[in-house]
């Protein structure tokens, strides 16, 4: 179509412009006519939209970059903020925030506790809520579906990639906090909030892995809600905002004492149960319940998302 470019000879030998009839094309056409399976050569539903491709598609987005930038910068901002505080303040106090400067591990626990309730929720909601809705808003969704990428597969691959990004977000923050805290406050044994006991750093590292793992699982509900909303709308912000909104509503409800044990089934109720893992005698019962609630909600919500997407008329 570009008159300027058309006369230029194609280095590959395929003749552009008028000489468009390439041997390859003719052969291909004949082969296709014989193929009663009705699919193009080389096409296999199981090979569509490889994870690598979806990773690249999402990676270079500004919001991905910005979110990881914030998550990586936050520990350093906190380190600087703690440097401003008067030295020795809160000495002897056993609150998590006052113990943050006791060492890298304490600092990482603190960073996780302050970000788990909102920042990480937003990060997870962003990665999972944006994934399908943004494709819909760019109209690229219909070309992927017509490629064709089977709907279940499209959703599965997108879910895997979104979850992977979410997991990276949840993991990268405490790890960076551990690094920043260790550089700033040293590699010290962890001082348990509340009781003041000191646990050797080597003993607590595996527990720290449990903590991060639990933080991941407890964000599953957010991911699932965001994903369900993402499948249902072509407004990425709507999906992200909806998921964050649900978390807020749940947090408000769990403050209503009158609900009694019903609150245990709110998706956010057990979000800070990971604190129990850092106790001298770790109590995992709260975390087990949290995992159960989280898995329950997310399995159903994700199934709903698949069901919805299969039946949906893609009109965007």
């Amino acid at each position: 179509m570009s008159p300027a470019k058309r006369p230029a000879p194609d280095p590959t030998g395929h003749v552009p412009g008028g000489g468009r009839a390439t041997p390859v094309a003719v052969d291909g056409s004949d082969r296709r006519a014989d193929d009663l399976g009705g699919r193009a050569p080389g096409y296999a539903p199981g090979r569509t939209l490889p994870l690598r491709v979806e990773f690249i598609r999402q990676l270079r987005r500004r919001r991905t970059m910005a979110m990881f930038g914030v998550l990586l910068a936050l520990p350093w901002v906190l380190v600087v903020a703690f440097q401003f505080g008067p030295a020795g303040r809160g000495q002897g106090s056993l609150r998590l925030s006052d113990l943050a400067t006791a060492g890298g591990l304490n600092f990482a626990a603190f960073a996780l506790s302050v970000s788990a309730n909102f920042l990480l929720v937003v990060a997870v909601a962003l990665f999972c809520g944006d994934t399908v809705a943004s494709e819909a808003s760019w109209s690229s969704l219909r070309y992927l579906l017509a490629a064709p990428v089977p709907r279940d597969r499209l959703l599965r691959q997108k879910l895997v990639v979104a979850m992977a990004y979410s997991a990276a977000a949840v993991t990268v923050l405490p790890l960076m906090a551990l690094l920043a805290g260790t550089l700033a406050f040293g590699w010290n044994d962890i001082t348990v909030p509340g009781t003041g006991e000191v646990i050797p750093a080597a003993d607590v590292l595996p527990k720290f892995a449990v903590v991060i793992g639990y933080a991941l699982v407890s964000q599953l509900v957010v991911a699932a809600v965001a994903f369900l909303l993402s499948v249902g709308t072509d407004s990425p912000l709507g999906a992200v905002g909806g998921a964050v909104g649900l978390v807020i509503v749940s947090s408000i409800l769990q403050a209503v004492e009158a609900l009694g044990s019903l609150r245990e089934f709110l998706p956010t109720f057990w979000n800070s149960a990971w604190l129990d893992a850092l106790a001298p005698e770790p109590d995992y019962s709260g975390m087990v319940k949290g995992v159960a609630v989280s898995v329950t909600y997310s399995v159903v919500l994700i199934a709903l998302a698949f069901r919805r997407f299969r039946r949906r008329d893609v009109v965007s």
Partner: peptide, 10 residues
């Protein structure tokens, strides 16, 4: 149908 392999020829 949605995602039918034959769509790869389209």
């Amino acid at each position: 149908r949605p995602g039918a392999p034959v769509l790869s020829r389209l």
